[in-house]
């Protein structure tokens, strides 16, 4: 389903499947469902912090403008593409507020928001006991895998 990000009142990480932490301008994101993990570059962490805080599209775009000085049109285009890529990895969802407050982003030169995808440790992350385990076992095969 195509999501109209610009109408989203709040965009959140896809919890509880997705956990993340942003330190020193870099976000590390992990998807418990597939064992992939991600790191951000450019303005990726600046946006991901706003995702962690459940901000709206408009508020995220304004944060990007305020930090980098790019014009609103470029910020919206850049943000829209980035959110679509995050959504393709099942990392974000549209939700409701209330949004959390963030400190103003430090000024920085604009660089496109991007993230790296890492799947090399997926088997171990999926099997690691950090996963909640119940009588259903862990991890559960996807419905598509069961059907196959």
């Amino acid at each position: 389903m195509q999501i109209d990000w610009q109408r989203a009142a709040a965009i959140w990480p896809n919890a509880p499947l997705v956990v993340s932490e942003t330190i020193d301008g870099e976000a590390i994101i992990m998807h418990h469902g597939n064992g992939h993990y991600f790191d951000t570059r450019g303005t990726g962490a600046l946006i991901w912090q706003a995702v962690e805080a459940g901000w709206s599209f408009d508020a995220m775009a304004a944060r990007l403008v305020a930090a980098t000085g790019i014009d609103a049109g470029q910020a919206e285009a850049s943000l829209g593409s980035f959110l679509a890529e995050l959504a393709a990895q099942d990392l974000v969802r549209v939700g409701t507020g209330p949004a959390l407050a963030l400190d103003a982003a430090p000024a920085m030169a604009y660089a496109p928001p991007i993230f790296g995808i890492h799947s090399d440790l997926a088997d171990m992350l999926l099997l690691d006991p950090v996963h909640d385990v119940d009588e259903g076992g862990w991890p559960q095969p996807r419905a598509s895998e069961v059907a196959a």
């Binding site: 956990v19 993340s20 932490e21 330190i23 870099e26 590390i28 992990m30 418990h32 993990y37 790191d39 890492h118 440790l121 992350l125 690691d128 006991p129 950090v130 909640d132 385990v133």
Partner: peptide, 26 residues
């Protein structure tokens, strides 16, 4: 063996530790 005392199942900060390990690896 899955049991209530499994080391990481009972710790709420387990995900944070995993993220720190991934950050260190990267």
């Amino acid at each position: 063996r899955v049991h209530g005392g499994n080391m990481m199942l009972q710790r709420p900060d387990a995900s944070g530790e995993a993220l720190a390990m991934l950050r260190q690896t990267l």
